[in-house]
Design a protein around this nucleic acid. Structure first.
Lengths: 354, 354
DNA sequence: CTGAAAGCGCTTACAG
DNA sequence: CTGAAAGCGCTTACAG
C-alpha cells in the first residue's frame, strides 16, 4: 500500500488535517510545522493521491481537450502537435493536466464530452475545432460548463469564449494579394464546409472578389468533397474552363501541393502558369518545390491562448465572454507570380506554337 | 449538486450497493432490478462520478501517454497525430481515457511520470519514445508499474514490453536497395542520437555497408546537431569530398527535403545526380517534387499495438515481457536513380564541358 | 496555529 | 439476489 497522509501525520506527530494544509501551503500553518512535515513527506516519499484529492476538493486539475475526428484534414500535420504544444505549455505552467478525447466520430465525441462533464473528469474543456451545428458545443453551453474553443463558433458567437484567426480577413487579404499581382481570375479550393474555418475562408474570398468588383462564380470554387473524391478530375475541369483561373487559393498546404501535382500532370506550372497561395504554413512548405506562399496562422499561440482563456474562465465562471483573433502572417515564397510575367509567357508560348 | 448513487437508490427503492452493482453489470443482480434501476438512472440523468469510482475501485481507467519534448523531430508531423490516433482507437475500444504529459523538458517529464504513478493518476503508461539512458523508463521499470514503449529500449530490452519497427533492419534494407541500384558511395544524415531509433538506423546502415564490403567513413555521416546548426554547410562539405556520395539516406522526410533544397543550391539534382531515401513517409511526400522514396513505418499500428500490449499488461501484471516489430514498407517513388544513369549523365556533362 | 469530525461518491467484502 | 457497513485518501468548515 502506498504512503498516505495518515502515515505522514503519525510520523510527524501532527494531525492529517495539518498535513493536508502543508500540502496546500496554507498560510495558517507555521513555518516550523511546515518544515517538519515536509521533511517527513520527503523521507517517506509521500505523494498525494490524485483521485482522493479531487474527490474531496471537487476539482480535478485537468483540462479536457477534444479533437475533431482525426480524419479531418484540419487536424493533420502540423496543426495537432503544435496546438497541443501550446496547450501543454500553458496548462503545465498552471499545474493542470490534459485529458484527451479518444472518440472516432461525432457521436462518440459527444458521448465522451458528456461523460467528462457529468462524471467530473475535468474542470474545463477546449474544443479544438468549430463545427457547424455542433451539439457538443451546444451541450457545453447549456450545461454552463467552462469551455473555450479554437475556432469561431457557428452560433452563439457572443456567448462563447473563443480563439481563432480572423479567417475571413486573411482570406480577403490573400485574394487582395493576388489582386495586387494582377490576377483577376482567382479560384478557391476549399476545406470541409462542416467546419467554420472553411466557411469563413470561403466567405472572405467571396467578399474580396465582390469588393474588387469581380464576379464570384461557382465554377471557380471546388468543394472539399469533390476534391477529395476526384482531385485530378476537378483540377482538369477547372483549367479547361473557357476562362481558366490564373491563381488559386487553397485551404491548406497539403491540398496546395496536391493541386500543384495535378497541374503538373496537365503540364501547367506553378508559378509560371498559375499562382497558388495557401493557409497553415506547414513545416515542409519552405523546403519543397515550389516553396509555397502560405499564411502562417500561429498555431502554438492558438493553443496557448485558448488555454489561458479557459484557465481564466475556470477560476472565475462569471468572467465575461471573450474572443481574440491571433495574428497571422503571409509568408511570401515562390508559388505566386505577377500576371504580367504570366501574360508574357502565354504570349511567348503561343508564338512558339505558331 | 449532481445526482448521486444515493438519489438513484432512493428513487428506485434499492440500496446504493445495488445501484453500484447495476452500473458494473454484476451478474448477481436480477434482470428485473437492473431494468428498474437503469430506468431511474436514465430518468434522473445519473452519471457516475469518475473520481469517486476510481478512489473506491483503486483503478483509473486511464492511460498516461508521455511524449518526448516537442522540439524533437521524431514527434513532429506526422508521427504524433498518427500514433495518438492508434492509441485512441485501442483505448476507446476498451473504455480507457488518455492523460497526456505536458512537460517541456526531460526533468519535467520525469517529475510528471512520477506523480502520475505515485499519485495514481493512471493505470499504465505509454512512452512514445526510447531515449538513451532514460531515467523515466528506469523509474517505471523499478516501480514495476505497467508500461510499454514505442521504440526499442536502450537497456533492459528483455525486461520491458515494447513495440517498434525493426529499425536496424529497415536501414539495412534501404542501403541494400541503394546498393542494388548500383550505389557504392552512400551517406547517412541522421537523427538525434539520444534516441534509440536514430542509433538503430545508423547501426543498420553501418552493418549493411560492412556486409557489402564497403567502408564506413565518418565523413559520410552527418550528425543531427551538425545538420540542424549548419545544414547547408554540412551538405556542401559532404558533396565536396574527394569522393562525394551518389546516394544519401536521411533519417526523416523533413530532413530529406531540406537536404534536397541544399543540394539544389549547389546545382545538384535529385535523383539525377544524387539519390535520396528516407524514413517515415510523410503525407506530403507523395505529392511534392521529387516524390520521395521513403519507408512507411505504420505509425498507426505502432500506437494501436502499444496500447494493446499495455492493456494486456495492466489486466495481468505477471504477463510475460513481449515485443513486436511492426512491418514497414519501402515506398518507391522518384528520388532514387540507378547508378548507371548517373554515370552516363556525369559522362555526358563532362563531355559537354569539354 | 492545530485537531476532531464529517463528508466527497463511490466499491466491495461480509452477511443473510 | 440484496443490504448495511466499512473504507478508498483526501479536504474543509468548525471549534478551540
Amino acid at each position: 500500500m502506498a504512503i498516505t497522509i495518515i502515515d505522514v501525520a503519525k510520523e510527524a506527530n501532527v494531525s492529517p488535517s495539518t498535513v493536508s494544509r502543508v500540502i496546500a501551503d496554507n498560510p495558517r500553518i507555521s513555518e516550523q510545522t511546515k518544515r517538519k512535515v515536509r521533511e517527513v513527506m520527503e523521507r517517506l516519499e509521500y505523494y498525494p493521491n490524485f483521485q482522493a484529492r479531487n474527490l474531496a476538493a471537487k476539482s480535478t486539475k485537468t483540462i479536457g481537450v477534444i479533437m475533431s475526428n482525426s480524419t479531418s484534414l484540419a487536424f493533420q500535420n502540423p496543426f495537432f502537435p503544435e496546438v497541443i504544444r501550446g496547450i501543454c505549455t500553458s496548462a503545465h505552467a498552471s499545474k493542470y493536466g490534459i485529458y484527451l478525447s479518444t472518440g472516432g466520430n461525432e457521436e462518440e465525441i459527444y458521448q465522451e464530452v458528456v461523460s467528462m462533464v457529468q462524471g467530473r473528469k475535468v474542470d474545463g474543456i477546449i474544443l479544438l475545432y468549430s463545427r457547424v451545428n455542433d451539439r457538443t458545443m451546444t451541450f457545453l453551453k447549456d450545461a454552463q460548463f467552462p469551455f473555450t474553443m479554437v475556432g469561431r463558433p457557428y452560433k452563439f458567437e457572443n456567448e462563447v469564449t473563443y480563439i481563432d484567426n480572423d479567417n475571413q480577413k486573411i482570406a480577403h487579404d490573400v485574394v487582395n494579394y493576388l489582386f495586387g499581382l494582377g490576377h483577376r481570375q482567382i479560384a478557391f479550393i476549399g476545406g470541409n464546409l462542416d467546419f467554420v474555418v472553411s466557411k469563413d475562408r470561403l466567405e472572405g474570398y467571396r467578399q474580396a472578389l465582390i469588393k474588387a468588383g469581380l464576379l464570384y462564380t461557382d465554377s471557380y470554387f471546388i468543394h472539399d468533397d469533390a476534391f477529395k473524391a476526384n482531385g485530378d478530375r476537378s483540377i482538369f475541369e477547372l483549367m479547361n474552363l473557357k476562362v481558366p483561373p490564373t491563381a488559386i487559393v487553397a485551404h491548406d498546404d497539403l491540398i496546395a501541393y496536391e493541386i500543384i501535382r495535378y497541374l503538373e500532370e496537365l503540364s501547367i506550372q506553378v508559378p509560371k502558369d498559375v499562382s497558388i497561395v495557401s493557409f497553415n504554413n506547414h513545416s515542409l512548405s519552405a523546403y519543397v518545390k515550389p516553396p509555397l506562399t502560405s499564411v502562417d496562422i500561429s498555431i502554438f499561440e492558438l493553443g496557448l491562448e485558448a488555454t489561458n482563456f479557459l484557465l481564466e474562465k475556470m477560476s472565475d465562471p462569471k468572467s465575461t465572454v471573450k474572443h481574440h483573433f491571433v495574428p497571422t502572417n503571409l509568408i511570401e515564397r515562390d508559388s505566386c507570380g505577377s500576371i504580367k510575367q504570366l501574360v508574357n509567357k502565354y504570349q511567348q508560348e503561343k508564338r512558339g506554337k505558331k
